[in-house]
Amino acid sequence: MRPLLAPALAALAIAGSAQAESPHAAPTVEVTISPELRQKAEQEYGVRDVERLVADLQQKTEREMQRSGVLAGGRIELTLVDATPNRPTFKQLGDTPGLSMSSFGVGGAEIEGKAVSIDGDVTPIRYRWYETDIRNASRTTTWSDAQYAINRFAVHLSLGKAYARR
């Protein structure tokens, strides 16, 4: 059985590398953190929490762009400009005596960047969503609204709805 398995795996590897080099491959997604949010992460939220949001933004954007086929072979460069938690982060709880996980507020996120097509055309991207009703925040986790904003952004981008409006 092993001799049959090796050629099959080799064929899959070749097909996978050919697909990655194809102009129809999903766009590459690069995500950075704005200097302001990085400072908030270091001083207030905790770097680990914000880095998880960055990883989530990259993964969800890649997945949705792969599903839709939009911007095949292109590149997406994003910056997580701001994110606000619904509940205190681990660092905030440690830094502020008396703060409780029962505390809650509205949260959200702001994302900017650009989409670069395979032909080199650059399209600015801007997306911002923050919860406006405190009543929706009482049954949330630490980053619920920021996660919701990231999910909405990824879907809207894959549908062509998150491009910056002039």
Rank of each mutant, 00 (worst) to 15 (best):
Lys40Thr: 14
Ser158Lys: 04
Pro85Trp: 07
Ser68Trp: 05
Ala55Val: 06
Gly105Tyr: 14
Thr89Gly: 07
Arg126Gly: 00
Ile118Asp: 06
Ala146Leu: 07
Lys91Tyr: 04
Ala13Lys: 12
Gln58Met: 08
Arg75Ser: 08
Ala6Cys: 09
Ala18Asn: 11
Pro88Trp: 04
Gln58Cys: 06
Leu12Gln: 09
Thr132Met: 14
Arg87Tyr: 08
Gln59Thr: 11
Pro23Tyr: 04
Ser102Met: 15
Pro7Lys: 06
Glu44Ala: 13
Ala164Phe: 00
Val155Phe: 04
Gly16Val: 13
Thr123Lys: 02
Leu159His: 03
Thr123Cys: 00
Val29Met: 03
Ala164Lys: 00
Val54Ala: 10
Thr140Ile: 09
Ser144His: 12
Ala18Thr: 13
Ala162Asn: 02
Val116Asn: 07
Gly16Cys: 14
Gly46Asn: 04
His24Pro: 07
Gly98His: 08
Phe90Gln: 09
Arg87Ala: 12
Trp143Ser: 02
Lys91Leu: 11
Leu78Ser: 03
Leu159Asp: 01
Arg52Val: 05
Lys161Thr: 00
Ala55Thr: 12
Gln147Tyr: 13
Ala162Ser: 08
Gly16Ser: 13
Ala26Leu: 09
Ala154Asp: 06
Leu71Gln: 04
Gln43Arg: 12
Leu5His: 05
Thr141Arg: 08
Arg87Glu: 11
Arg52Asp: 02
Thr28Asp: 12
Glu64Arg: 09
Arg63Pro: 02
Gln39Cys: 06
Gly73Val: 10
Val47Trp: 06
Val47Arg: 07
Ala6Arg: 13
Ala26Met: 13
Ser103Ala: 15
Arg166Cys: 00
Ala146Gln: 04
Ala154Lys: 01
Ser117Gln: 06
Leu159Cys: 00
Thr61Glu: 05
Thr96Gln: 08
Pro97Trp: 05
Thr123Trp: 00
Leu78Met: 09
Lys60His: 13
Val54Leu: 10
Ile118Ser: 08
Arg128Met: 07
Arg67Ser: 09
Ser102His: 14
Pro124Thr: 02
Ala6Gly: 05
Val29Tyr: 00
Ala154Ile: 01
Thr123Ala: 00
Ser103Glu: 15
Arg139Phe: 10
Leu57Arg: 03
Gln19Gly: 14
Val31Gly: 02
Ala6His: 11
Ala162Lys: 01
Glu42Pro: 05
Pro23Leu: 11
Gly160Val: 01
Arg75Gln: 10
Asp82Ser: 15
Gly107Cys: 14
Glu64Cys: 03
Gln39Pro: 09
Val50Phe: 08
Val31Trp: 01
Thr32Ser: 12
Arg152Tyr: 07
Arg126Tyr: 00
Ser102Val: 15
Val70Glu: 02
Lys60Glu: 14
Thr140Glu: 07
Phe153Ser: 01
Arg135Trp: 09
Ile150Gly: 01
Thr61Asn: 06
Trp143Gly: 01
Thr32Cys: 04
Ala83His: 11
Glu21Asp: 14
Val81Trp: 08
Gln58Ile: 02
Ser100Lys: 12
Ala72Trp: 11
Thr79Met: 08
Gln58Phe: 01
Glu131Leu: 13
Gly160Gln: 02
Ile111Gly: 01
Asp119Phe: 11
Arg166Glu: 00
Arg165Trp: 00
Arg152Pro: 02
Thr132Phe: 11
Asp133Ile: 11
Thr28His: 11
His156Phe: 03
Asp121Gln: 13
Asp121Arg: 03
Ala115Pro: 06
Lys40Ser: 15
Gln43Ala: 10
Ala15Trp: 09
Thr141Pro: 00
